[in-house]
Amino acid sequence: MSSYVGRLTLELWLPVVLVALWWFASMNSTSAFFPPLRRIVQDTVDVWFIQGHISSDVLPSLTNLLFGYAIALTVGVALGLLLGLMPRLYDALEPELEFLRAVPAVAILPVAIIAIGLGDDMRITVIAFGSFWPILVNTVAGIRSTDPVVKDVATAFGLRPATRLFSVRLPSAAPQILAGARTALSIAVVLILVSEMSGAFRGLGNFVLAAQRNFAITDMWSGMIILGMLGYLVNIIFRVVESQILRWHPAYREGAKWVTSQ
């Protein structure tokens, strides 16, 4: 018990000190760019929870994010499975895939705006495109690196193809697929924000950039705080899902190591 409290103290002291430092250092700040933290906090509550920007700006962002990411995940894992199981095909397509994967996803945004317009469809497309590649590539790699012994087991027991796929190949590739999904998620978050920053009338990205352009600095800070918290929340949710899926994996059995999951 006391060791638990000790650990908690050890982990919490620095964040507490940092926030306190910010709070007191900015207390009497008259700088237009760095308003007092107290005002930022008040403003955050006011803008996001009382005026309801949570539902008008955060929800649409999250919905688009979710749709785009879900598409990338489904298509990425399905195609990854296919290519992973067909090494010849993958080998033939490798140069094209490597090329497309290297596209910095934000670069396609203007193209998507010209082609599709400024609506949510465009945002979902861009997110799906950008987060698709890490998932695809990692799925292929995961499927191909199945331990040969595990494959032999599957063959030796004469497992049906479906069983082999869903009970052997896919789970054994899961750690790598999830690693890809994690990268994809952070790309997706960047893309939703960038897409909202360039030509949208709502959404979190639009809110912070508009606040900056209108010199509503406190609003801008409050938006950044909400964004930071959302980023953290999304990450925690991902981590919970991941640890559920990978219960069997040694890294999780030992008790998750935080740095491992980078």
């Binding site: 650990r7 982990e11 620095l14 920053m197 950044m224 980023g231 935080w258």
Partner: peptide, 26 residues
């Protein structure tokens, strides 16, 4: 390592583009 864990974990999950408005301002 234990002391910086939470702070680093929080800071790294902030989508970096969040800083665009602030960086633009500065």
């Amino acid at each position: 390592t234990a002391s910086t864990r939470l702070s680093a974990d929080f800071l790294r999950t902030i989508p970096p583009v969040t800083l665009i408005p602030l960086a633009l301002l500065l």
